[in-house]
């Protein structure tokens, strides 16, 4: 995966066969539409045992945009996002068909090093999941497993990451205390800081505010918007207002299928598909 940038040619080739049924967005992507996608899913089918959880998904994620995935629970949105850093491999009895390309390289291929992939594609989970270690150790963890940085550099990186995650001022005097003593919202920002420390290119948010109060949620949303400058962001949410507030593009999933994908404004104001409209207007789900 180290030589990804040299192989962009392959990505261009693959893009020409793009069969994604995405509608053009209304805003936020004029300057991006001609740029090659950061991540592409092509013909993705996913099975839990005999059950087909995802049906023929084709979808592109543009760099430095926030893409939201919405849909009723059980629609496959979390399953899908967990394919992008291969977290579903941890679930026994699952099977994937199709290709998922990161900068044009197939991350599903056996030669792809899953640990390297996950360093480039970070993830923030539904429930804050700090390690039962100190705040400092939590953020330093990803740096230490790479083992190349000096102590001083790690300290700087930890401070930097905590600042980016808007948590530094709240925790700078208690970095050595257990992360489990933080509030839920602080824990979630710590998890974001921990993720940033590894310097990923993509960050996947799997319903990051599902277990948080409205104030913490607002802080996380604000944070996600600032992160957009640097990272490609995918966020799964069951909260449509949240999708409308933070995202540039929105995809609607229903029963394992990608129903509609386009600019967030369009999806919420003028969806093409009847099912999307029904969901947006609260007629089901």
């Amino acid at each position: 995966m180290h030589s990804a940038s040299k192989e962009r040619g392959a990505a261009d080739f693959l893009l020409s066969g793009n069969g994604v049924k995405s509608a053009p967005g209304l805003f936020g992507e004029a300057e991006n539409s001609c740029i090659e996608p950061k991540i592409s899913a092509r013909g993705v089918n996913f099975y839990y045992g005999p059950k087909r959880a995802l049906k023929d998904i084709n979808m592109d994620f543009s760099p430095r945009l926030i893409t939201a995935i919405i849909g009723p629970s059980g629609c496959g949105k979390s399953t899908f996002i967990r394919l992008l850093n291969r977290m579903n491999e941890l679930v026994p009895g699952t099977r994937l068909e199709g290709e998922i390309l990161l900068d044009g390289l197939d991350i599903v291929a056996p030669v792809c090093d899953v640990a390297e992939l996950r360093k480039r594609v970070g993830m923030v989970f539904q429930k804050p999941n700090p390690f039962p270690k100190s705040i400092f150790e939590n953020v330093a963890y990803g740096l230490e497993i790479n083992g190349s940085l000096a102590r001083r550099a790690i300290e700087e990186k930890v401070e930097d990451s905590l600042k980016k995650a808007a948590l530094w001022d709240e925790v700078k005097d208690r970095l050595r205390e257990s992360a489990l003593g933080l509030s839920g919202g602080q824990q979630q920002r710590l998890c974001i800081a921990r993720c940033l420390a590894v310097e990923p290119e993509v960050i996947l948010f799997d319903e990051p505010c599902a277990s948080l109060d409205p104030i913490s949620t607002a802080k996380i949303e604000e944070l996600i918007l600032t992160l957009k400058k640097t990272y490609t962001i995918v966020i799964v949410t069951h909260n449509m207002q949240q999708a409308a507030r933070v995202s540039d593009r929105t995809a609607f999933f229903l029963m394992g299928e990608l129903i509609e994908y386009g600019g967030t404004g369009m999806i919420f104001k003028a969806p093409h598909d009847r099912r999307t409209e029904d969901y947006i207007t609260g007629r089901f789900g």
């Binding site: 989970f125 497993i145 790479n146």
Partner: peptide, 13 residues
């Protein structure tokens, strides 16, 4: 399980 996932998601083996 969540903290195992957290670690793996950071690129730990």
């Amino acid at each position: 399980q969540s903290i195992r996932e957290a670690s793996l998601a950071l690129g730990a083996t």
